[in-house]
Design a protein around this nucleic acid. Structure first.
Length: 85
DNA sequence: TATGAGCGC
């Protein structure tokens, strides 16, 4: 059925936010194993979204349920299951 | 000193 992995897509994130802050925030719903902020290859600026990887898929799904729409540094986060390439 | 939908080094 679902081929989705343990990574979640985090959109609408503040431009000035570190992976540590994101990991700390998502650590509330599960065991975060990795956080990757997506930067632009051409300019090097943050593109405004990131990916958070969880140790378990349950943590990823809980992050979607609990943190999707949650406020983070004044922005409302968009959390969804990542494509997991 | 910037920007704001969307899926990646």
């Amino acid at each position: 059925m679902s081929g989705q992995g343990f990574s979640v897509y985090v959109g609408n994130a503040p431009f000035q936010t570190s992976e540590e802050e994101i990991g700390n925030f998502f650590s509330n719903v599960g065991n975060v194993t990795n956080v990757r902020i997506v930067y632009d290859r051409e300019t090097g600026r943050p593109r405004g979204f990131a990916f958070v990887e969880f140790a378990d898929e349950a943590g990823a799904q809980k992050a979607v349920q609990e943190l999707n729409g949650a406020e983070f540094n004044g922005r409302q986060l968009r959390v969804n299951l990542a494509n997991n390439k």
